[in-house]
Amino acid sequence: MSFGTNIYNFTQYGDDLPGLIEFVRTADELGFHNMRFLDHVVGIVAEKHGGIAQTPYTNKSYIHEAFTLIAYLAALTTRIQFVTGVLVPTQRETCLVAKQAAEIDILSGGRLRLGMGVGYNAIEFETLGADFKTRGKRFEEQISVMRAFWTQEEVSFKGQWHNIRDASLAPLPIQRPIPIWFGMGRMYAPVPTDAILARVGRLADGWLPMIQPGPEARECIRKVHDAARAAGRDPSMIGMDVSLVVGDKSKAQLIDEVRAFRDLGATYINAYFPVSSPRGEIEAMKRFRGEVIDAAA
């Protein structure tokens, strides 16, 4: 089991690119396994849309574009893995997602893991000219197209949404294919629908659930594993990257929670530090590294 963290809170710190860079470099130096990056292409002026359900991200959020930011950081780091958490391919163009992911994989020496989700913000879809209703099915087709591009030198694919004939990506990525993990659920509503869990079992290399240790989580895992077996896959090959809210919890409590996640079968634990400042986040990360990670091992 390895540890990662994320830059989610940085959307609230305004214009501080040097602070963000230092946070990521510090994580790299401290031996954190991975760093998650969020994706929103366009901001929505929330009050003009009668409020938008369930999003912490609006036009005031300072959101760096995920792929270009990762490409930039690839040159400034050596070990840390970059994880999109999550990218919404249904709002992007499939070949371009495949191409840019391949490029980042090359630039970083194979350090990309692609966390992807179907998206939830209908206004974003409308603004981007992407269909909201069909996003689940389209997502699945996109994954087939991307994996074909990452592994074959000649791709032809005719589906409901794609029409590709004798085309390719050159260069191919280092990882063939780049791992695709599915994101789902929210901190306050962590249990996904059965359809989403089944999709993980059928198609994903791993998942990024928000579930916390307990009977509900075990039930979710069982459903993923059942779907994997039904699809002829080995459930033990599906990784699980869970979220741990650090907050102001005591060292002892954090160690307990880490161990509970380990017992649940987590591959990675993503630490969510409290909102503070870039400097505060770096301090929180150092504390977590010193007080929790080694002690819980």
């Binding site: 792929f67 191409k99 090359i106 004798d166 390719s168 260069p171």
Partner: peptide, 16 residues
Amino acid sequence: SKSYIHEVFTLMAFLA
């Protein structure tokens, strides 16, 4: 298909 083409935005970001 034989041309080795780096994706332009991510390559420029990498070089930045």
